[in-house]
Write a protein that binds this DNA or RNA. Structure first.
Lengths: 218, 218
DNA sequence: CAAACGTTGACGCCGCGTTGACGGCCGGGC
DNA sequence: GCCCGGCCGTCAACGCGGCGTCAACGTTTG
């Protein structure tokens, strides 16, 4: 795991860093808030161990800035103040965890491990092909960057075409995937949906017909 | 946010639950570890407030089981023992945070909020989007700088929409996150809440309907 | 005890999905 | 070469479900 330790007191900083390295983490150390933000610009850390009382730029401000950037790094904040109000304030700033000084190193290590333990939820794959971007999770479709509002069936059909990755998809296959099991195979609902899809997706055309076979994207 | 409180002492359990409900969370309560695991099977909680000393199934075992299942729920463990060794042990089991009894309710609330935030990596404490500012900590909402008083359910629903960051959220998902388990999925309480939200938030409209799918912010 | 809130029933509207009808295009049979 | 039939695109019309809204009721809250 990649860890940044931000602590102005040199001895404490090194102690923490060495302890974490013993747990097989890659640790960088800086001694003020400004330097911390620079590093966070360049490198992709998993966890930031952040002292609250920092010279130049205060720990709170580092925290706020990270939140603003929507950084993926998680913050464990260290602070001298042990009273409840300060603890609450720290968490409210966007820190992910909080540890009052003085602390046992083992506890810091345990909290760092807890922060890094769970893998970030894997984002569902965004389907993309020939100018079409479809995000299954957000239920959005873009054509060359322009948002295209689609109905449920249109969305489902387009998703199937994209999943086919350029292969032809028969009307029967589409019926099977995008409609429920009691769909009537003798109707032309698929044709209608394809028609509307083509219109909404605009020019140049991306949905092509493979006569006698089905439809193909690209 | 959807929360499960696991605490065998009835009075404490209810106090905690009601306090969290006042913060516009949907809270379910159970009194032993076995029941907790059953609920966790069925519902999708964001945070579990877990007493360590539990009848039937011990809190540690609940924790282990959750880790085994790779549950996405975050665990805040409550325990009578305040010494460092126990804290480290709890975290090692897979708990995400740890709070020794006795505690101030405000601190529990703050830690629950922090854990909920962590579920979506680095989400800033104040949610903001398209002219809407929502402060979970202060429980306040502003539309273009003007204060908008919201009821608990309205607040909870808006918070979920904001957390989705522009993605569409189905009525089922809203029920899952903003209502507790006695909610009836066949009614239109969600529609009503959305209706009132729209009115209070004023023009131009920010809550859009995705027909057949759900609601989307912006 | 009053007011705010959450929930429910009823109702009307709008749009999606579906269907029927029709016409153009192409290939095959006589 | 002509006609016929299948395949596909397009238009218009219909039914139904989803959704917004009003009014009223039970419940919680200060």
């Amino acid at each position: 795991m990649r860890i940044l330790v931000v602590e102005d007191e040199p001895l404490l900083a090194e102690t923490v860093a060495q302890g974490l390295r013993r747990d097989a983490h890659a640790v960088d150390v800086v001694h003020d808030g400004g330097a911390a933000l620079e590093r966070l610009d360049v490198n992709d850390y998993d966890v930031v161990v952040l002292d609250r009382d920092l010279p130049v730029v205060h720990g709170d401000d580092v925290c706020r800035e990270l939140a603003r950037r929507e950084s993926a790094a998680r913050v464990l904040m260290l602070t001298a103040a042990a009273d409840v109000d300060d603890r609450v304030a720290g968490l409210a700033l966007g820190a992910d965890d909080y540890l009052p000084k003085p602390f046992a190193f083992r506890e810091l290590a345990a909290r760092v491990a807890a922060l890094g333990r769970r893998a970030r939820p894997a984002a569902p794959p965004v389907l993309e092909r020939s100018g079409i971007r479809l995000d299954p999770h957000r239920r959005e479709v873009y054509r060359d960057g322009r948002y295209v509002p689609l109905s449920r069936k249109e969305f489902a059909v387009l998703a199937e075409l994209l999943r086919a990755a350029g292969a032809a998809v028969s009307a029967e296959q589409l019926l099977e995937k995008a409609w429920d099991e009691n769909a009537d195979p003798f109707t032309h609902t698929v044709r209608m949906t394809i028609l509307k899809l083509r219109r909404k997706l605009g020019d140049p055309p991306v949905v092509h017909t493979e006569p006698g076979v089905g439809y193909r994207l690209a």
